[in-house]
């Protein structure tokens, strides 16, 4: 599969249906790259014309802004907006809820107005339109799956149902953690925590969440965020369950189960 960039489309005088915003984690983090590939594979399979920015993409600026560094945020944001507007981008899909939040809610104030969609919502509409068809008796049929609400998709943007609807198509048994939906417990990565040691306390946030997820008895923890992915994977390891419980992104679950 060759993934075309915006520059390539533009060179041919074409515009893709949607821009896939990959994000820094999706581009560089080895685990998150698998999510990126899974999502790109799905898009390719259902025949969506999509592009990436490739080397031209920059960090949205989210971690800098939340750490308090508005200058770096503004630098990244204004550069990105210039680029996106130059390509005339209208519609963006991203597999990272932090990128999603920043692009959707914070870029408009700086002159960047796009329709921004998180990949779980995008997958839901592909399923609703019948473009994604699931295998009979797929990989996850009958398995117990628990879904972790990321803060930036959930509370920050009130998206709770789309990811769950996508998971329902797997024919698996969905079990909820006690703290779910708007009460969901953070994985510990947001607000630039991903990029520094935790303050001292009685335990780590991802250990607390990892234990809670493992306690549901699920064999799969479904995530929607590359940072939650890292945090929960460590949390499950700490609970000594890395052999029995897999943390997978919703895109990976669908990629493995679709026809």
């Amino acid at each position: 599969m060759h993934i075309k960039t915006m520059a390539e489309y533009a060179a041919n005088g074409e515009t893709p249906e949607v821009l896939f915003w990959v994000g820094c984690a999706g581009s560089f983090d080895q685990r998150a790259q698998k999510i990126t590939k899974a999502f790109a594979t799905i898009l390719d399979k259902v025949g969506i014309q999509f592009a990436i920015l490739g080397k031209e993409e920059s960090c949205t600026g989210d971690p800098a802004r939340r750490a308090g560094n508005e200058f770096i945020f503004q630098m990244m944001a204004q550069n990105n907006i210039q680029l996106l507007n130059m390509y005339g981008v209208k519609k963006i899909v991203t597999a990272c809820p932090h990128c999603f939040n920043t692009l959707k809610n914070e870029y408009p104030a700086l002159g960047g107005n796009y329709e921004v969609i998180h990949h779980t919502t995008f997958l839901q509409s592909l399923i609703d339109e019948g473009k994604i068809k699931m295998q009979e008796g797929g990989t996850f049929k009958g398995k117990k799956i628990t879904y972790h609400d990321s803060c930036y998709l959930g509370r920050a943007n009130n998206i709770y149902e789309a990811p769950r609807k996508v998971l329902e198509t797997l024919d698996a048994e969905l079990v909820e953690m006690k703290r779910c939906r708007s009460k969901g417990l953070c994985c510990g990565a947001g607000g630039a925590q991903m990029f520094k040691e935790e303050e001292k306390g009685s335990t780590r946030i991802n250990f607390e969440r990892g234990h809670e997820a493992v306690a549901t008895g699920a064999s799969v923890i479904a995530a929607n965020c590359p940072f939650c992915m890292t945090m929960l994977t460590d949390g499950v390891k700490e609970a000594g369950k890395e052999d029995d419980v897999k943390v997978l992104d919703i895109a990976e679950l669908i990629a493995q189960s679709m026809k």
């Binding site: 803060c151 935790e198 303050e199």
Partner: peptide, 11 residues
């Protein structure tokens, strides 16, 4: 420094 900006408090 310890805040994850998770918005649970606001919620």
């Amino acid at each position: 420094r310890a805040c994850t900006t998770c918005n649970a408090c606001v919620q």
